[in-house]
Design a protein around this nucleic acid. Structure first.
Lengths: 187, 187
DNA sequence: CTCATAGGCTAATGCCATTAACCAAACGGC
DNA sequence: GCCGTTTGGTTAATGGCATTAGCCTATGAG
């Protein structure tokens, strides 16, 4: 067998580079093959098809994000933890906007493990609030929606007006923490 | 000239039907042409290229959403208005999940007018709060992020767990209204 | 009535994904 | 050390798509 130059992991690595450099739309098997200095069909020895590459890229990105936010949340509690969660999430996306845009949100088996770790990180930011199982799910969804909405709009250039984005995000964090506190008291 | 069967508007109409029926990924010039009973190149007499079709589809969807949300907010104020804004926004997306997923968020000249109307609707939900110009922008961004995050995750099937979504959304609305109230007092 | 033009068509190009068929190098067992 | 199987690469072929070029014709303005 001709000196195994490639591997599934290497393909994903090249895919990540392409996404970073040229955006998710440029992620094609032809581009990966060119980057690898190999013919396009060769990739099929390491990967089922383009859909699988995209799923693996998603999983990789979610995994990185999970690591980042897990670390950020660790050792913090309540408002402080939630602030860290949201802030670090946004920081990651700002560092790798194309990467985040490449993530497929629909649950996918290959992304299940990193997805679970990300969910764990969210839940970790909620520890100590004494939430029951179901409420924790609702709260986690709300926090995820909140950050996801902001960072995806931000990274896709969805905010047009020339007004400071950091201040908007600061308000978002305040609204989330204060809103959560209030909602938990009422409900 | 052979009896003008098509028009730009008709093309967009067919595009919307395809998006509704088969999802945004199925929106191709070939599919539109098939639907219209015409050859693919004929479409170029009515539309510059596929990118333009997508932009026009985005504009149409944003316009519909703006109409719905405007009507829902009209005559309401404060928490009531914000609740109506978020709820109607979600209702529209649930009725047309593929349509919403087809929207390109990046500001685009062709979508500027409906985009402005949508922004107006958001701002209308804020009237009476006495916000200065800049604060209103921040708040509008936060509300948009909040709904957008939730409904895009929901419409893409991003929420996996078998826990009631209406309850999650209800919490989101409560968090948003209470959070906004609190944030405006603090800041 | 004429003729410019709008709105359709076919043919051709080029990019992409995917499949099939083939080939050689490396490894494992002997 | 030798041999066959496997592995990781190759080229060729197919088919979908967007887009461009060039053609053709009915229609409506004059």
């Amino acid at each position: 067998m001709p000196k195994a130059a490639l591997s599934t992991g290497a393909v994903v690595g090249l895919a990540l580079r392409i996404v970073d450099d040229r955006g998710p739309a440029a992620l094609t098997l032809a581009a990966i093959a060119a980057e690898a200095g190999v013919s396009t069909p060769s990739l099929y020895k390491h990967v089922r098809d383009l859909a699988e590459v995209k799923a693996l890229v998603s999983a990789a990105v979610i995994g990185e994000l999970a690591d980042r936010v897990s670390a950020a949340v660790m050792g913090r509690a309540s408002d402080d933890a939630i602030r860290a969660l949201l802030t670090e999430w946004r920081a990651y996306v700002r560092e790798h906007p194309h990467r985040y845009a490449a993530v497929i949100q629909r649950p996918e088996p290959r992304a299940a493990e990193p997805g679970a770790r990300l969910l764990d990180a969210i839940n970790a930011s909620l520890h100590g609030l004494g939430l029951d199982e179901t409420t924790a799910v609702h709260v986690a969804r709300c926090l995820r929606s909140t950050v996801h909405g902001f960072v995806s709009l931000e990274s896709e250039g969805g905010f047009g007006l020339p007004v400071n984005l950091d201040e908007s995000f600061e308000l978002l964090v305040t609204m989330a923490t204060a809103g959560l506190r209030a909602a938990l008291q009422e409900g």
